[in-house]
Simulated scan of single mutants.
Amino acid sequence: MEYVNLDAQVGDLSEVLDPARYLSHLSSISDDLPPGARAFATDTDHYDFRSRRCVKDLTLRAVRGAGGEEMEVEFQHNCWKHDQDLLIRYVGVSSFILDPADGDRGTDLRTVILDEILPHRDGCSHEIACWDGTLTLVCRDLQATWIETTCSSKS
């Protein structure tokens, strides 16, 4: 990640997630993002850890169309925090890198830590950091859709 800090220090606490530098930078780059990427990145709930539409704590469920010009990445809700799944459709994909921390995991990167969307000469780059690796796509644009679901374990 270029701006999101996944290992910030706050007082005596280390390994704190801090998107503040990215959010500060986002205001100056948002006009350079394609429309769908801009809407998703600038959504006020995106980096609000208390929000049901924050990407933190979603789980990577599926990657469809890898290697193609159109891809879908599906994330499953966490019943303690979310009441919706997230589906991101990427168009004009020019680069796709799945980098598992352990080569034997395949696409099982587990839980999302945070993500970062930046302008790119091909449209935008979207880096998604998970506990067990990262997923990075470069595309012309993306469309993020929150999908209603039910939580059987929610109390």
Rank of each mutant, 00 (worst) to 15 (best):
D115H: 01
V16F: 15
L98D: 05
P35Q: 00
V93S: 02
T150P: 09
P35W: 03
Y47C: 00
H126K: 05
G92I: 08
L13G: 07
S95N: 03
R89Y: 06
R21T: 14
N5F: 15
D7C: 06
L26R: 02
D115K: 03
F96D: 07
S51D: 13
G68C: 05
D57I: 01
V10L: 12
D57Q: 07
R52Q: 12
R50E: 09
P35E: 03
D115P: 07
L98Q: 12
S14A: 11
D122E: 15
G67Y: 14
T149R: 14
V63M: 13
V91I: 08
L13Q: 14
F49S: 10
C151R: 05
E116P: 11
G68S: 11
V91F: 03
H126Y: 04
P100E: 01
A129M: 10
I97Y: 00
T107F: 06
D122V: 05
R61Q: 10
C54S: 11
E70L: 08
G103Q: 09
R50F: 10
L137Y: 11
L98G: 15
S28D: 14
E72D: 15
F49T: 07
C130N: 00
L86Q: 06
H77G: 05
W80M: 06
C139H: 00
Q84A: 09
E15V: 14
D7E: 11
T44C: 10
H120N: 09
E2Q: 04
H77A: 10
D45K: 07
D83A: 04
D108H: 09
Y47E: 02
S155P: 06
Q143G: 12
F40S: 11
A39G: 09
L26S: 08
L60P: 03
T149Y: 08
D83E: 11
R38Q: 04
T145M: 13
V93C: 02
G106Y: 00
Q84I: 06
R38L: 08
L135S: 09
R38K: 12
T42E: 06
G92M: 05
N78P: 03
L135C: 12
P34S: 01
G68D: 07
T42W: 00
C151I: 01
L114H: 13
Y3F: 01
A101M: 10
L114P: 10
A144C: 14
H126T: 04
R50H: 03
G67I: 08
T150L: 06
S155T: 07
L118W: 02
T42L: 03
S94D: 15
L109W: 02
R21V: 15
G36P: 02
G133M: 07
V93F: 00
P119S: 09
L23N: 12
K81Q: 11
D48E: 13
D132F: 11
R38N: 04
S155W: 03
E74T: 14
F40D: 04
A41L: 00
L33N: 01
D102S: 14
S14N: 03
V16H: 15
E70W: 07
E15P: 10
W131L: 14
C79T: 11
F40W: 05
V112Q: 05
R50M: 02
L118H: 06
L17H: 10
T150Y: 10
H77I: 10
I147S: 05
